[in-house]
Design a protein around this nucleic acid. Structure first.
Lengths: 352, 352
DNA sequence: CAGATTGAATGAAACATTTCAATTTGGAGG
DNA sequence: CCTCCAAATTGAAATGTTTCATTCAATCTG
């Protein structure tokens, strides 16, 4: 680790004069405060030549508008925030991208925070953002039923819940039909002739894990199969590592009672499972067919491309942002629970 | 896509009273403004009972400190920002995580922005952040030599360049020795007996792509091999899709002139290449050995685990944040160019 | 008990901007 | 030459917090 240096002039060029403000610009341009402000905020209301003079002064001084002061006066900022649950899961970065597009369209900034699945980080960010007077907060919460989420809207900062649903109808939310998703996945496996299907997912405290299992059970029932045909393999988290462990558990079963296919509650698990299959020389899909969930880009890029349940990630984010903006503008707002429909994408991991 | 509604009370409960401020708290608690402020900022300097009374008043009113006003007075915010180049590349989310840890340790907020490789988004974020008076900005710039990066520090907002280097020594920067990384990768392949090695990367405007190639060439020269032993396959971007295309190009070559191994400028390319190999029934590593770069988590999780050049991603971020903080506190600051050392991680894609 | 010391609380000033009612300016119309 | 009008500009007030020099009260010292 090498290191070299130089420079020395920390900040400003000379006698450390403090940052120029509208006042300085006004003085230099020979106009009043109000006029400078008009140039900034209602350029059409000021004479072209005056405007040019003011702009020249700004450039000369290197004027940078002080957003704090502007905000103080305005009462609110022009930013949205998204508190994402796990920045290392591509699913969420894609959702964030959708939000960003919507924010950009409305000329708002988006600040992204990452709770890394820790409730206490989430709390810190929530209150910091509230103090910043952001226009609203989008969040995929660690626990969707946490009461902390009720306070902010009550005090005036709208909150929209993303990719989670809540028992009480207290917020707008955007989610995807997880029961249907599970149904699609398992119906597909049944059609391929599988009747020993593993469901890999956990922990069961996650509503999504439960919903996707329910969908799987429904598909079995609809096909005249019993709940015993679904072999539950519960994991500690939805990670690649846990997927690998699940693979070991499957391989460890006696051949008579070994599933011929697996439905994973997300793609991270599925990728881990796939990797373990290769390591253990189980052929995919011949020895074990695999269906994932989320259809992240890496799923299609796996060595055996993964069949997966696609969620409209971008659209999820975009719609959430729009709900938020609607809530900020419309005072007589009715909370809306938007539910998108998932879609099965069939690839090599189930097709021979 | 179903939708249901309810609620109706947009914000506050009653007569839409505006948010309570220190003034209201002071009135309710029967103390002066200054005392409320002291409770907030120097709790030890105020009588315990008074403090309790003030805190009760805050709770009752649902007081939320107005960060704009605080900032206006203080002159600066307590936040850092990281403008990342591509949030969909796990490498950068890991770097961001390192930054976050450092920020958290100093009790600062981190706002993450994503330029998505677009110079114009980058510009927008830079100026918004400057207006917010963030303490400093970390950035992986679209173009490290852009002059826009010089203006902010000149006006007083420190900027640290992450994972890129600059010709001029005008900023602190943190990077990894890419020439050495390329050397490690290709030396490894040479040791395994390869002498037809493809270098997959592009576009050549990227300094990193060039540096890693230089390292590769150096390794060849050191082993007494000529530059002809490196087969250059230039891509349009460092994406999975481009990796797949590169695989097609390799397969399309006559067997006599086909490389037996490939060194990819990042893991996204390597994953795409790997996928294409499987699709075209080229065995990895027997028909084609593959080395990636970055060692993202998905590299280890690939069906054929990927040999890759690991960069200390978290550490990169953490160190960058520390340089930034040093610059904000120490006025007589010398710019520092930190260069970390990469490390080769050997896995199945090169080992039989 | 006078004087000194400490601990708590006060309130006005400052921060940089925006807004808006009031004022000025330069013509046009009569 | 006067009146009126629109366009352009002005300047003071307001935003919510922090700071700091004072004030006030109570306790301690000799």
């Amino acid at each position: 680790m090498a290191t070299t240096g130089s420079n020395g002039r920390g900040g400003k060029s000379q006698g450390e004069t403090r940052a120029p403000g509208v006042k300085d610009v006004a003085a230099l341009a020979g106009v009043s405060l109000g006029t400078v402000s008009n140039v900034l905020n209602r350029p059409d209301r000021v004479n072209v030549q005056t405007k040019a003079r003011v702009e020249a002064a700004m450039a000369e001084l290197g004027f940078v508008r002080n957003e704090s002061a502007r905000q103080l006066r305005a009462g609110r900022s022009n930013a949205l925030a998204y508190i994402m649950l796990d920045a290392s899961n591509p699913f969420f970065t894609d959702v964030a991208h959708g939000i960003e597009l919507a924010a950009e369209a409305h000329d708002l900034s988006l600040f992204t925070c990452n709770s890394s699945n820790r409730a206490e980080r989430e709390t810190v960010y929530l209150s910091r953002l509230e103090e910043q007077r952001v226009q609203g907060i989008l969040i995929t919460p660690v626990n969707p039923d946490a009461e902390a989420l009720d306070e902010l809207p009550w005090r005036g900062t709208p909150v929209v819940i993303v990719d989670r649903t809540r028992s009480a109808n207290t917020h707008c939310s955007v989610a995807v039909d997880d029961v249907l998703g599970g149904e699609l996945a398992v119906s597909h496996l049944i059609e391929l002739g599988h009747d020993h299907i593993a469901y890999i997912g956990g922990p069961n405290t996650l509503g999504q894990v439960r919903d996707r299992r329910r969908g799987a059970q429904k598909a079995l029932a609809d096909a005249g199969l019993g709940p015993d045909n679904l072999i539950d393999i519960t994991t500690d988290a939805l990670t690649v590592e846990e997927g690998r462990k699940a693979g070991e558990r499957i391989a460890g079963r006696p051949a008579s009672n070994r599933p011929t296919s697996a439905f994973c509650a997300n793609d991270m698990l599925a990728l881990g499972l796939l990797q373990q299959c290769v390591a253990l020389r189980m052929a995919v899909p011949d020895d074990l067919a695999i269906v994932g969930y989320d259809d992240i880009d890496f799923a299609a890029a796996a060595a055996v491309p993964l069949t997966s349940v696609r969620q409209p990630r971008r659209e999820l984010g975009r719609r959430a942002a729009e709900l938020l903006l609607a809530e900020t503008t419309d005072p007589s707002h009715e909370h809306e629970q938007v539910v998108f429909t998932p879609e099965l994408v069939v690839r090599g991991s189930t097709r021979m």
